[in-house]
């Protein structure tokens, strides 16, 4: 009897999951994340960008629903233009985009469904591609093609805050144009040493998060850039 109930349950929930449209899948991911109002965490940021030579930067990441976001650092840093959580919040209104499931892919032993979205309005986003785990309602990876910044791939490594749809690590991979300052402007004349040119066309920024503080109200002033 127990076996029959189990098989029925698997079939019912399995069929229910299969019955979800791509929009519903994306909405469920948004809904899971939307339960979080505020959070902050320590951030360690690693840079691997052609033309940029800098050590790890440490700071804090602050977020408040729906789109307040800041990476608070002490010194100079180059940061991604995108608020990584803005795209997830953008999935809330399912009437603003078309979603199409285009297949499945296994990334780091996790089976993911690939859903493409095309916005219906003429905003900055041209197209988006999400790698989603239906069972967990989690987005593990997404690729955004925007008018202002080209294509950005965002990988999320889930960890201890998986239940809140918060990653332990976010990796941004983005297009970079060749970095070159005219020697006259850099006043780098008569250089004694020539480095081998870095001809890579993409850069990555990896943010590792720790010490999360969830749903504790963050003051507005903390989001203001100094």
């Amino acid at each position: 009897m127990k076996k029959i109930i189990f098989v029925l349950a698997v079939l019912i929930f399995g069929l229910d999951a299969l019955a979800q449209t791509p929009k519903q899948v994306l909405y469920n991911c948004y809904y899971k994340f939307s339960k979080l109002n505020d959070f902050k965490a320590d951030a360690a940021i690693h840079f691997d960008v052609p033309g940029l030579n800098m050590k790890q930067a440490n700071g804090k990441i602050l977020y408040r629903k729906p789109n307040k976001f800041r990476i608070k650092l002490m010194g100079i840093a180059f940061l991604p233009k995108q608020n990584p959580f803005e795209s997830i919040n953008g999935l809330a209104d399912t009437n603003t985009y078309v979603a199409v499931s285009i297949g499945n892919e296994k990334i780091n032993q996790v089976s993911l469904e690939i859903i493409n979205i095309i916005p219906l309005n003429q905003g900055d986003l041209i197209t988006g591609k999400f790698w989603v785990n239906r069972a967990e309602n989690l987005i593990y990876q997404y690729e955004l093609t925007t008018r202002s910044s080209g294509t950005v791939m965002i990988n999320q490594k889930m960890g201890e805050q998986k239940i809140h749809a918060l990653p332990d690590e976010i990796k941004f991979t983005f297009d970079v144009s060749k970095f070159k300052i005219p020697k006259g402007i850099a006043m780098d004349i008569n250089s004694a040493k020539k480095k081998s040119l870095d001809n890579r066309k993409t850069g990555t920024i990896i943010m590792n998060f720790a010490k999360f503080v969830l749903n504790k109200k963050i003051k507005d002033i903390e989001f203001t850039e100094e």
């Binding site: 940029l52 990476i71 002490m74 180059f78 940061l79 950005v152 970079v176 144009s177 070159k180 850069g203």
Partner: peptide, 17 residues
């Protein structure tokens, strides 16, 4: 800004420069 404009197409510069 003139120097960093090519790199700032993809990422933004933050902090006291």
């Amino acid at each position: 800004g003139l120097i960093t404009q090519s790199i700032e197409q993809s990422i933004k510069l933050s902090g006291h420069i």
